[in-house]
């Protein structure tokens, strides 16, 4: 196999990894900072893809980005209001919104479950036109993805240092303390989920435009894939207080996830295994540390039952 095939595969993995890392960054905000497991992520990802596609198809490639993020904000706001103002359990509100978004997404696509953007002008075709004739002509997708990831990472790094960002982190840490600091935790939860879902929507929009089509299943399993990437990132960057390092870890985790997946595909793993693999990674990443902490207890039990210890 020629070397260039590997380079191509690596580049594709990098592009996909960077685009999906936007969802990982969104989960970093909602899951790691706000301590809310946002199960509306799948639907919101698809919403960003469909809204972005419809707006791009109508001839507004840049507006498509804004519209997708705006749609994500609306979706995040709905999830947040359900859990902070209407007494719906946090996990349940994500599931409810996710289910509702399925209908919304088909409605956005005008009743279809698939839209084609083969000849549509998008930020990717714009970038390709811009880079034409330069040595980077073949890296146009990468360039768009890289710009988006850098912008979102820098925004999050700065945002989490502000008073609002601190309040969001504290809400995930100790809501009582937030209240006694004269801040309404319902407000911080709403803001946090709106911002996170704007990035999820952006992620879906860019993926659809990069692959020039959107179908209703584009976001299925995204929450697990993103969570797996986030947890892979944690093993590199740790769970310390260095936010920029952790953001970089989240992006790295997403890229590594895609690279490993690519390699597995080369070794003839069927493509449909992606979601099972991501599930297993999440299980290992969460259950691993738990079992490790239980290990002394298990060992103590075994030793005690075997009757080998002095009584």
């Amino acid at each position: 196999m020629p070397f260039s095939v590997f380079v191509d595969l690596g580049q594709t993995a990098l592009e996909l990894g960077l685009i999906s890392s936007l969802t990982v960054l969104a989960l970093f905000l909602s899951y790691s900072m706000l301590n809310v497991c946002d199960l509306s992520t799948d639907g919101c990802f698809t919403l960003g893809a469909t809204v972005g596609a419809v707006v791009a198809l109508s001839g507004h490639p840049y507006l498509a980005i804004g519209a997708a993020m705006g749609a994500g904000i609306l979706s995040g706001c709905t999830t947040a209001v359900l859990q902070t103002k209407l007494g719906v359990d946090s996990l349940l509100s994500g599931i409810i919104v996710n289910t509702g978004l399925y209908s919304v997404n088909i409605a956005v696509m005008g009743g279809a479950s698939l839209l084609n953007m083969n000849k549509t002008e998008t930020v990717f075709t714009k970038m390709a036109a811009l880079l034409q004739g330069t040595p980077f002509a073949r890296q146009s997708k990468l360039a768009v993805a890289l710009i988006a990831v850098l912008a979102v990472s820098v925004f999050l790094a700065l945002f989490l240092r502000t008073r609002l960002g601190l309040a969001i982190r504290a809400t995930g840490n100790n809501p009582d303390m937030v209240r006694s600091s004269s801040i309404n935790p319902a407000f911080t939860t709403i803001v946090g989920l709106c911002v996170a879902n704007a990035f999820t929507g952006l992620s879906g929009c860019l993926l659809a435009q990069a692959q020039k089509s959107v179908n209703i299943d584009i976001g299925t399993g995204m929450v697990t894939i993103a969570l797996a990437s986030l947890l892979i990132g944690n093993t590199f960057a740790g769970k310390g207080r260095n936010i920029p390092l952790r953001l970089a870890g989240a992006v790295l985790g997403a890229v590594i996830f895609r690279l490993v997946y690519m390699v597995a595909l080369r070794f003839h793993m069927p493509a449909f295994m992606l979601k099972l693999v991501s599930s297993v990674i999440v299980i290992i990443a969460i259950a691993g540390p738990y079992l490790k902490s239980r290990f002394p207890v298990l060992r103590r039990r075994l030793v005690h039952r075997s009757g080998k210890e002095a009584r």
Binding site: A167, R169, N174, M177
Partner: peptide
């Protein structure tokens, strides 16, 4: 434990307060 956010630094806790 109720009055402070354990995962945040002393400085960040004070800043919020």
């Amino acid at each position: 434990l109720r009055g402070t956010a354990p995962g945040m630094t002393i400085e960040e806790n004070l800043a919020l307060a």
